Computed example of a mutant assay.
Amino acid sequence: MTNVELKEKIIEYSKEIGIDKIGFASADPFLTLKDRLLEQQRLQYQSGFEEKDIDKRVTPKKLLPEAKTIIAIALAYPSKMKNEPKNKKGERRGRFCRASWGEDYHRVLQNRLEKLEDYIMSLVPEAACKSMVDTGELSDRAVAERAGIGWSGKNCAIITPEFGSYVYLGEMITTLSLPPDTPITDQCGTCNKCVEACPTDALVQGGQLNSNKCIAYLTQTKDFLPKQYRKQIGNRLYGCDTCQQVCPENKGRDIHSNEEFEPDPDIVKPLLIPILQLSNREFRENYGPLAGSWRGKKPIQRNAIIALGNYKEESAIEVLEDLLLHDPRPIIRGSAAWALGQINTERSALSLYRAKETEKDSDIVKEINEALDYITSEVRYAK
């Protein structure tokens, strides 16, 4: 079998197992990527979730010494849900981004890659392969770009001609020597909508992201949310879709080719107050299958509290007061203090005064005082 024939067989099998797009690239070092990563490091734009060793991120042969080819795959996910629940006063809801709908994509793509690897090994038993999804050393985006899956958009996502940027990416390094595909020319042109629409100006310029300002990153942190970004979080519990929603290439894109990514509306757009009352077991049972659960319960609950503050949801005062008075986690108590200040009623002010009498943590006392100052200033302004 020639390498061309082998490539065709792999492409055909990939369709049979539900891979929406596949591409092939050389395993040469990603030299221009290294320059960009070093610049990101110099500017301190990294999220901290990345592989620390830049050489591993740009040199496939450091991961598989005899590497010759990288096979890139993409699976499309939906942008719209059926029977989306209403968000109304007294029943406020949060939102998980589209990339966290359905089953955790890491598991789904890893399953597809394992099947693909087994097939390759059945054809060429002496081949060696190494697969990864998102958490691996290589840059999924750089691999997909080289393999012709799509172009790298100004929103720092791969944009495919068929599915827009609503795709998950994975790759397999292999010792097989397969004909590479041609990269797709950049199609963004002068469009700058994603950069202009970013709520926190995290897209510094087309294709460069300051991760520390990105809402998708901020929703995954475990510390206090910086005050300057709490309003911009809105009702987001995990991730952010803004730069994808405004992209013209995503207009009308809503792909339902993979059943695993179909969302449960009440899980991905959940009521906020019940989230604050979940036990660890209940959180794992309800949200464990989502990609957005990987950081645990606390960040999701903190974001839910911020969302209730942004909604000025008065029905949440009782549960927020209980968290402020009794929750052992400082981040949750401090976030509850902020939210009560934003709700800005006499009852929320009384809750803050009550907590101030017993709170010992200086950071939380500061949050309480700032919340009370906000209420006072709002009352003064109203007069």
Results as ranks from 00 to 15, higher is better:
Glu114Arg: 14
Gly148His: 06
Ile149Val: 11
His106Ile: 05
Ser131Arg: 13
Glu137Arg: 12
Leu116Ile: 11
Leu109Tyr: 07
Cys129Gly: 06
Arg107His: 14
Glu137Cys: 13
Gly148Gln: 10
Glu126Gly: 00
Lys115Pro: 00
Val108Gln: 06
Leu113Gln: 11
Leu138Val: 12
Val133His: 06
Thr135Ser: 14
Leu123Lys: 10
Gly148Pro: 12
Arg141His: 10
Glu114Asn: 14
Tyr105Ala: 00
Ala127Pro: 11
Gln110Pro: 04
Gly136Tyr: 13
Lys130Gln: 07
Glu117Met: 07
Leu138Arg: 04
Val124Trp: 01
Arg107Thr: 10
Glu114Trp: 09
Met132Phe: 15
Val124Glu: 11
Ser122Trp: 08
Ala144Gly: 06
Glu137Asp: 15
Val108Asp: 03
Met132Gly: 15
Gly148Lys: 04
Pro125His: 07
Glu126Leu: 01
Thr135Ala: 13
Ser139Pro: 09
Thr135Cys: 09
Val143Asp: 05
Ala127Ser: 14
Arg112Thr: 07
Val108Leu: 09
Ala128Lys: 15
Glu145Val: 01
Glu114Pro: 02
Tyr105Leu: 03
Arg107Tyr: 11
Asp134Met: 08
Leu113Ala: 07
Thr135Val: 14
Leu113Trp: 04
Ser139Lys: 05
Val124Ser: 09
Ser122Gly: 12
Val108Met: 05
Asp140Asn: 12
Arg146Asp: 00
Val143Ser: 02
Val124Lys: 10
Arg112Gln: 13
Asp140Ala: 06
Val133Glu: 02
Tyr105His: 14
Asp140His: 10
Glu145Asn: 12
Arg107Pro: 01
Gly136Met: 08
Leu113Ile: 12
Leu113Ser: 08
Gly148Trp: 11
Ser139Met: 10
Ile149Lys: 03
Lys130Ala: 02
Tyr119Cys: 02
Ile149Gly: 01
Thr135Pro: 07
Met121Ser: 14
Glu114Leu: 07
Lys115Ile: 01
Lys130Met: 04
Leu123Ala: 05
Val108Cys: 03
Leu123Met: 15
Leu116Asn: 01
Arg146Trp: 03
Glu117Tyr: 00
Ala147Val: 09
Ala147Ile: 05
Ala144Pro: 08
Gln110Phe: 10
Val108Glu: 08
Tyr119Asp: 05
Met121Leu: 15
Arg107Ile: 06
Val108Phe: 06
Leu138Trp: 11
Val133Ser: 07
Asp134Trp: 10
Leu116Phe: 02
Leu123Ser: 02
Val108Trp: 04
Ser139Asp: 04
Cys129Asp: 04
Leu116Asp: 02
Glu137Trp: 08
Glu126Phe: 01
Ser139Cys: 11
Arg141Ala: 06
Asn111Ala: 10
Arg146Phe: 00
Asp118Trp: 07
Lys130Val: 00
Leu138Glu: 06
Arg107Asn: 14
Glu137Ser: 15
Arg141Phe: 03
Glu145Ala: 04
